[in-house]
Amino acid sequence: MTKNVGGIDRTLRIVIGLALIAAAATGTVGLWGYIGLVPLATGLMGWCPPYAMFGFNTCSVKKAD
């Protein structure tokens, strides 16, 4: 798996995922808040399956000249 999630995208996924999980754990939102596991996992891994399917890449990779 080549990393296709980077920088701000990765940070936002982790923060949003943790916020949704915390909200679900405290009962602020319903059980649907555990969907936050998805952005958390993709942010931690740095790879997103839909990004790979559609050819998106937010990870800045420097190419050697």
Rank of each mutant, 00 (worst) to 15 (best):
T2Y: 14
K3S: 03
K3L: 06
N4W: 01
G7A: 13
G7I: 09
G7W: 14
I8M: 13
I8C: 07
D9W: 02
D9C: 05
R10N: 03
T11C: 09
L12N: 12
L12W: 13
L12T: 11
R13I: 04
V15E: 07
V15T: 14
I16L: 14
I16P: 00
G17V: 00
G17K: 00
G17Q: 00
G17I: 01
G17T: 00
L18M: 10
A19T: 11
L20I: 04
I21A: 03
I21H: 02
I21W: 03
A22D: 13
A22K: 09
A22W: 12
A24P: 03
A24W: 04
A24N: 07
A25W: 15
A25I: 09
A25G: 14
G27V: 08
T28P: 05
T28G: 10
V29I: 15
V29M: 03
V29D: 02
V29G: 02
G30A: 15
L31W: 15
W32N: 11
W32H: 12
G33M: 01
I35T: 11
G36V: 03
G36S: 11
V38G: 01
V38R: 01
P39K: 02
P39A: 04
P39Q: 08
P39E: 04
L40F: 05
A41L: 15
A41Y: 08
A41N: 11
T42H: 04
G43N: 01
G43C: 04
L44P: 04
L44S: 12
M45P: 06
M45F: 13
G46N: 06
W47G: 06
C48R: 00
P49V: 10
P49G: 08
P49S: 10
Y51T: 05
Y51F: 11
A52G: 11
F54Q: 14
F54S: 13
G55P: 01
G55W: 03
F56Y: 13
C59Q: 15
S60W: 14
S60L: 15
V61L: 07
K63A: 09
A64W: 08
D65G: 13
D65A: 12
